[in-house]
Computed example of a mutant assay.
Amino acid sequence: MKILVTGGLGFIGSHTVVELQNEGFEVVIIDDCSNADEKVLDGIGAITGKTPIFEKIDLKEKNDVADFFQRHHDIEGVIHFAASKAVGESVENPLLYYENNIGTLVYILKALSKKERSNFIFSSSCTVYGQADEMPITENAPVKVAESPYGNTKQMGEEIIADTCKVTEGLNAIALRYFNPMGAHPSAEIGELPIGVPQNLVPFITQTGVGIREELSVFGDDYPTADGTCVRDYIYVVDLARAHVVALKRLIDKKNRANYEIFNVGTGTGSSVLQVIESFERVSGKKLNYKVVDRRPGDVISAYADTTKANNELGWKSEYTLDQAMKSAWDWEQKIRNKS
């Protein structure tokens, strides 16, 4: 069964490709390599023993998308990761984000709407909740006004999919709202490869630990949390990748209750910034150089998932601890720095 993974050379995409191939799916990757490296294909091949089909396509080119689906008319499912994802950059360049994150989604859905039956998994985000009123966050929590164009593209993406499913017979979709992915494959063949300064906490921690960054800034220690720092739900990337495979199988096996469903994907546990730093210090045996600075505009205080729906409906549950995920991130960081 042939599955398209857009953005399949990226952090979450590449780990999902590995899990798909481990389950016997034939995978086709589309990536424009604007935020990824073709060498990731070698890592996927090393882990699974098979290198997936790869096409370097810019999904903003509508005709190229249509041409792809004409050539690969036997695609049974699509997992859509391809998107720009830096919150700060989206504030500075909103039109880039709307074109790249919304336009590409529309072109793919147009192609799928011509098929008799299609299965679509959308990479959404807990950013749609903003600062939720209650913890843990359930799928019924209200979607708040987006704090950034990036967050808005995830909200709009979900709305576009829901509207399309209402009028497109045969289109079945699941949006996975995930929390904070981290870590690397236990083989250390693939992992997170941020270009430039990392946008996420964990790669900034590991880069500081390995000596690339001089110091980690902790943005605020006066929040109403146990230790005053922001709380997030950090999920191991392999757990997250497996959730995509389980969701896809749900659609293929026609076990979905509606043609558009939403699931939170997280651990169900909140960890503060200081707890994440402590986890790094435990697994690495190193003290991390960090300092507390002023709060950062737009940061929510706390966000962690209620995963009951995914646990019960999908039969999926996160398996790895924060320390296990952190160790994989540290192993990966050391490996790629020793190579260079």
Rank of each mutant, 00 (worst) to 15 (best):
P224W: 01
P224F: 08
P224D: 07
P224K: 00
T225H: 03
T225F: 04
A226V: 11
A226T: 12
G228R: 12
T229N: 06
V231K: 00
R232T: 08
R232F: 04
D233Y: 07
D233G: 00
D233C: 06
D233Q: 09
I235G: 06
Y236R: 11
Y236W: 12
V237D: 00
V237I: 10
V238T: 06
V238I: 14
D239P: 07
L240S: 07
A241K: 12
A241D: 07
R242E: 02
A243C: 07
A243K: 07
A243Q: 04
A243V: 05
H244A: 06
H244T: 03
V245M: 06
V246R: 09
L248I: 01
L248M: 02
L248S: 05
K249F: 04
K249C: 07
R250Q: 02
R250L: 00
R250Y: 01
L251K: 06
L251G: 11
L251M: 01
L251H: 01
I252R: 01
I252V: 08
I252H: 02
I252M: 00
D253W: 01
K254D: 06
K254M: 01
K254C: 14
K255I: 13
K255F: 15
R257Q: 15
R257M: 15
A258E: 12
N259E: 06
N259S: 14
Y260F: 12
Y260E: 14
Y260N: 14
E261P: 14
E261S: 12
E261M: 12
E261Y: 07
I262M: 10
I262A: 04
F263H: 02
N264W: 15
V265C: 09
V265G: 04
T267Q: 03
T267A: 06
T267K: 02
G268F: 10
G268C: 13
G268Q: 13
T269F: 06
G270V: 09
G270E: 10
G270Q: 13
G270F: 04
V273W: 09
Q275M: 10
I277V: 09
I277E: 02
I277A: 09
I277M: 07
E278P: 14
E278K: 15
E278L: 15
E278R: 15
E278Y: 14
E278F: 14
S279W: 07
